[in-house]
Structure formats: structure tokens, C-alpha cells
Design a protein around this nucleic acid. Structure first.
Lengths: 231, 231
DNA sequence: CCCGCTCAGTGACTAAGTCACCATGAGGTT
DNA sequence: AACCTCATGGTGACTTAGTCACTGAGCGGG
């Protein structure tokens, strides 16, 4: 279980953990400190579902929120993750556009965050160029991510995408707990497809397989695969 | 050839054509009018390519800009269109994040637009809540669009997506000039796939086909197809 | 020890994308 | 008119991906 509140994240100190907000001027800093509510969430908490309306702006201080789309018939695809120091763009978008959520957000780990009600959010955006940049910049980053995702889903081979996902999720030759289903969800494909592809990777000596776990044996080999004709 | 400048879009009057900016306060309005440069573009003009850096914020007054991704090997997919009254979110994102473009933007028709250099854009965002909302709102809308696109590409059947595209592009039973290749690009698939599917639609009496043109015969039938298992 | 569960393996099938190639027709040229 | 060229679209054979239905292996709790 990860530490929820780092030593320097006291009631007033958490702001220091957000590098992009450090240049905040004093009035904005005071407003943010006063209005923001600390939130601690257990892993597996559903933050929002498609159709929910959005009430609060959220900045993640620690942990990871997974945002994914659900198909009508059980398939899923991970859109992006919100990690320490970033904001949930979908939440921002809903706040501003007064739209409903179109995806689902679930905490993957324990998550420490601050929440900001819409009026305070609006006031901060109006008052502080730094805060505005922070929000806008998050928007831009996610947008770029989503475009890359579209590109991968539309043009990329499963072989390459799986290799990339393995590199991302299993950095250094250690054994990681990853089921085929989780990888399938990651890529937006079916479990059987992942199983077959993984078996092929095993045959090539790139990975070792076991029930509910997986070991990357040849990162370079995977990288080659990922690079080949990936667009 | 569409009329480039509507009667009320005089040098000072084009602002009235943007409903979302009508509540602008007087100083912002003055700033916008003073700094914005009118631009007229011919159809087929490439506005930006992947890797380009971004210099200006752009608001489209009339016409349509198609923004699409290119795969390494010739395939394309349309991400969205920027039409009258809206802004190119990718441009905005690049301006703010100081990133390069990751897609290509081409005018589909003659396009009338206003351009705003970054300093003026920044000043307006800082000064005017209305302008800020305008920009943010565009962001949110596109974001939602992109998510829907991811969903369709990842989960949707070509049959359904093609039916939807036909409904979108050929509203009322008239004959429209649309090649199979254009439709394939629209959906991010291959021309052969579209050809075969269209032939099937023709067999079902849903469309009439001809060289370089296409007629929707049964919109309701297409709508049924589009609705069936589309996610 | 058995029950029930999650996780993975498999074969047969359908859908989609790829490749190579040909046929057609429209427009311009000589 | 005859010809050429090019964009368009038709087609078969093949590969890759996704679906469906089912089997079996491991694992923990009662």
C-alpha cells in the first residue's frame, strides 16, 4: 500500500508537490489553499461513469486514475491515466462545457488528490495566468495523447501495440502481475488475441509466461517489434 | 464556389457571425477587432503538417478545414472538421503547449478565417472570460469528439461506420460526388473495404452507385444499420 | 476435499485489411 | 476520331484480427 501523504504534503504543503503551480502568485495560492479539499481514495474507486455530471475539478497529487471507454458489449480501452501532478482533462472538459462524462474513471492505486468546486475553479482560471496555463497545458497534452491513440488503434498492428504495452508496464526484466485480460483492456482488443500473441512472444523468447504474471526477457527484441511498421 | 465574405462580414462586422463571442465586452471586442487578421484561403490549401510549429490562433468564419492523421504507409483518418464559428483545437493546443503539430490540416472548401498572433491570443484569454469560455469550450467539444472516434475505431464495425458516414455526407436522397477512396479516408480504412461494403449496400437497395458519385436511397435503412451493434 | 472462481488455451468461424492486378470511363491531346 | 493517361473501382487470394463456444488448469475458502 503506497504512502498516501508524503512527508511534505501537509495541509498547506501539498501545493509544493505540483511543480507547474509553484510560480503561482500569492493571492492565487491563498485562494487555492483555502478552497481546495484534500481527498484520499482507495484503489478501485469509481470516480465517474458515462453519463455522470461533473461537480469538481480534480488535481491528482499521488497515485493513478485510469480513464477508459466501455463498449456496449464488454470491451474496454484505456484512454489515458491521470498521475501525480496532472488533472483529469475529461473532468475539466465537463466542467467547462457542462457536458456529461463520456468515459469511466477508476483509481488504480490509492489516490491522493485535491478537489476544487466549479466557482473556485472559475475564479482561479480568471485570476491566475499560471493556473490557466496549468489547465490548458494538461488539455493539450491529453489531446496529443488521444490523437496518438487514434493513430495506433486505426493503423497499428496488435503485435506492435502489445510489445509497446509490455515495455511500458514491465520496465526491467522483473516478473509483473499482469493478466491477459488487463492487457487486452489496455489495447482495446480481446483477451484471446492477447493470449495468442503472448504465446508467440514466448516462442520467440521475448517473454516468460505464468498464471497471472509475466516476465519480459528481451526488451530490445520487443522494442524492435514495436518499431516495425507501427504506423 | 461559395461566397467568401457574407454581406455582414465587413471588416468590422465579422465578429457578429460568431454567436459565442457576441457577449464579448467592449475592450475585448476592440482588441480582437484590432489584432485579428482576415484570411481567405483556397480549397486544398495545406494549413499545417505534422512537425510544423504553430504561430497563429485561427477562428474559421466560413468553410471547412479537415484535420486528419496520416499513417506511415499512406492510410489516413479524418479526426474532425473545423467549420464556421469554431477554432482549430490542435492549433490552440500547439500554441499553449508549444508543441508541434501532430496531424495535417487542409481546407476542404474556400475558407474565410481570422488569425490572431500568440501575444494577442494570450491577452484576450487573460482579459475576457467570454473569450476564454469560447476557447475552452471548443477544446471540450473536440475532446469529446475524439473520444467518440476512439470508441468507433476500436469497437465499431465498418458496416455501421460507413452507414453513419453516408448519412452525414449525403443528407437528402440527392446524388453526391464521393469516391470510395474519400470515404475510406474518412473512416481510416482501405478503399477495397469500402468498395465491397458499398456494393453490399447497393445489393440491399440502400444506395445507388456510379463512378465518382453516390446516391442514398434509403436513409432509414442506413440508420438501422448504423444503430445495430455500433459500440 | 470439493466447490467455485479467475485465468488461460484452443478450434472454427467471421470481419477487416492487404496485395496484386485488371477493367472502365472521363478528359484532354493530336 | 483515335489515342493516351489517369483516377476510379472491381476482384480473388491471402493475412491479421476479433468472435464464439468450450475446455482445462490453478488457487483459495469452507
Amino acid at each position: 500500500m503506497p504512502r498516501l501523504v508524503a512527508p511534505d504534503m501537509t495541509e498547506t504543503g501539498w501545493l509544493e508537490a505540483l511543480p507547474d503551480l509553484r510560480p503561482l502568485d500569492e493571492p492565487a495560492r491563498a485562494l487555492l489553499s483555502r478552497e481546495a479539499a484534500r481527498v484520499e481514495l482507495k484503489p478501485g474507486t469509481v470516480l465517474f461513469r458515462p453519463g455522470d455530471v461533473c461537480a469538481n475539478f480534480l488535481i491528482v497529487l499521488a497515485g493513478s486514475v485510469r480513464v477508459h471507454l466501455l463498449s456496449e458489449l464488454g470491451r474496454e480501452i484505456v484512454l489515458y491515466r491521470v498521475t501525480a501532478g496532472s488533472t483529469c482533462i475529461l473532468t475539466t472538459s465537463c466542467l467547462i462545457g457542462r457536458e456529461d462524462y463520456s468515459a469511466e474513471g477508476v483509481t488504480e492505486t490509492a489516490v491522493s488528490a485535491v478537489a476544487l468546486a466549479k466557482p473556485a475553479f472559475d475564479a482561479l482560471v480568471a485570476a491566475s495566468p499560471v493556473f490557466r496555463d496549468f489547465v490548458f497545458h494538461g488539455f493539450g497534452t491529453r489531446l496529443t495523447d488521444l490523437m496518438r491513440l487514434v493513430s495506433e488503434v486505426a493503423f497499428g498492428r496488435i503485435e506492435c501495440r502489445l510489445a509497446e504495452a509490455l515495455i511500458r508496464h514491465a520496465p526491467v526484466g522483473g516478473t509483473v502481475p499482469l493478466t491477459h485480460q488487463v492487457l487486452a483492456t489496455e489495447l482495446g482488443t480481446a483477451r484471446e488475441v492477447v493470449s495468442r500473441q503472448l504465446k508467440e512472444f514466448e516462442r520467440l523468447g521475448l517473454v516468460g509466461l505464468g498464471r497471472g504474471r509475466l516476465e519480459v526477457l528481451d526488451t530490445a527484441g520487443l522494442r524492435d517489434l514495436a518499431a516495425a511498421a507501427s504506423g
